[in-house]
């Protein structure tokens, strides 16, 4: 058996999988997005842009996603950065790995159960009851945009901390010494040395979180209670309840397109401000 043939045999199953379960399904979605809804639900062949023209009827879902995904990403970033900084710079090296693992572990456990925990905490008998006991009156938390944001930050914080930690940890400490030897106060060293050098980590983390948030379904479903609707929730409704495959496909295509455009713009913005892309994996 030649080397080249062995290589094709090794690639065979993966190639088959990508062709049958990635390329074919995505092509089907693209084709269906140009079709029509069959009277009984499902798909009827057609060649029309009518579904795309109709996207406006689900504008709220896009609006919610395009507002809450960036806001959620920003909130996660603001909470994650100081923690990553603490882990990389200030923490005791002996405990560093353990502390980092403690941050990442929740990400690999069920997001369903972690969101459920917040239904519990934000629900009527959770934090609002505690606040009422303190005399803060009747506050509603569950099924609000705030609850969805809490769920987002809770769910994706680990994914933000890790890349920032990696870029801060790689930072050459001698640069900070040089900065302070040249008379810069600590805050100035941070703003002019540490922060710019950690931007690749910030960029990677933000992008990972943002991409996942664009397709989010569970968090708005569970903590937004159908009132804070994302594109993902609209998609579930279109495919599993109203069985409008053509319109749903158009919406899915648009979601992926919006994602690609935003990510490309973001990358271009980053390369303009000089933060090169960093190859930090998921774990």
């Amino acid at each position: 058996m030649t080397k080249a043939r062995a290589r094709w045999l090794l690639l065979g199953p993966a190639g088959l999988w990508y062709a049958a379960l990635l390329v074919l399904p995505l092509a089907v979605v693209l084709v269906y997005s140009l079709g029509e809804r069959a009277p009984a639900g499902g798909y009827a062949p057609a060649l029309t842009l009518a579904q795309y023209a109709n996207l406006g009827s689900r504008w709220t879902a896009f609006q919610n996603t395009l507002v809450l995904a960036p806001v959620g990403t920003l909130a996660a970033l603001l909470i994650a950065y100081p923690l990553a900084y603490f882990l990389a710079v200030k923490s005791n090296p002996r405990w560093r790995t353990a502390l980092l693992v403690l941050v990442i572990v929740p990400f690999w456990t069920s997001i369903l159960i972690r969101s459920y925990a917040w239904i519990f905490l934000l629900g009527g008998r959770g934090i609002p009851a505690l606040l009422a006991d303190l005399g803060l009156g009747d506050i509603r938390l569950i099924n609000t945009p705030f609850a969805v944001l809490v769920g987002i930050v809770y769910g994706y914080l680990p994914l933000m901390v890790f890349p920032i930690y990696v870029s801060l940890e790689r930072l050459d400490k001698r640069l900070l010494e040089a900065s302070s030897d040249l008379g810069a106060p600590p805050w100035r060293s941070f703003l002019q040395v540490t922060l710019p050098l950690s931007l690749p980590g910030v960029a990677t983390g933000s992008m990972l979180v943002f991409i996942l948030l664009m397709g989010e379904y569970l968090i708005p479903q569970m903590l937004g209670g159908g009132k804070v609707f994302f594109v993902g929730n609209a998609l579930v409704d279109l495919f599993l309840q109203s069985r409008n495959w053509a319109f749903g496909s158009a919406m899915a295509v648009t979601l992926v397109a919006v994602m690609l455009v935003t990510v490309t713009l973001y990358m271009r913005f980053l390369s303009r401000i000089g933060a090169a892309r960093d190859d930090v994996g998921l774990m």
């Binding site: 990635l22 399904p25 995505l26 089907v28 979605v29 991409i211 996942l212 664009m214 397709g215 379904y217 993902g232 998609l235 579930v236 495919f239 749903g248 496909s249 899915a252 979601l255 992926v256 994602m259």
Partner: peptide, 8 residues
């Protein structure tokens, strides 16, 4: 997104 993979 997983949701798009699921639908497709």
């Amino acid at each position: 997104p997983g949701i798009v993979i699921g639908i497709a």
